[in-house]
């Protein structure tokens, strides 16, 4: 599996990662090598195998519908890059 520059660009866009132009060839090479490693999975037939999403065969436990959390906005926002009037600020969102 060999990834092209355009593949890297597409993945980087989906993942919202800036990749420096100069780094793209190396990134493409490394990702391609990893995909080659991953391709070894194809050596085994898994047609009738049930996919395993989780190591434990358990059902979801449910929580009672009770409000347990208090307002901790000030504390939470001390680590925020930019806030105003209690709101997190981001560059203008255009819908």
């Amino acid at each position: 599996m060999s990834l092209e520059r355009s593949d890297v660009d597409k993945i980087a866009q989906l993942a919202r990662l800036e990749i420096a132009e100069n780094d793209v060839p190396e990134v493409a090479r490394n990702l391609s090598n990893i995909l080659d490693l991953v391709a070894q999975m194809d050596s085994v037939n898994t047609d009738d195998v049930e996919p395993m999403a989780h190591p434990l065969e358990m059902a979801q436990r449910l929580r009672d519908d009770v409000v347990t959390e208090k307002d901790r906005r000030d504390q939470f926002q001390t680590v925020a890059p930019q806030v105003e009037n209690g709101l997190y600020l981001v560059p203008k969102v255009i819908e």
Partner: peptide, 21 residues
């Protein structure tokens, strides 16, 4: 009363981000 995955209140109209745990 509380959110689907947390114990924060779902009440409408609170001051911004005061009900975001």
């Amino acid at each position: 009363k509380s959110k689907i995955f947390s114990g924060a209140s779902t009440a409408y109209g609170a001051a911004p981000n005061t009900q975001a745990c």
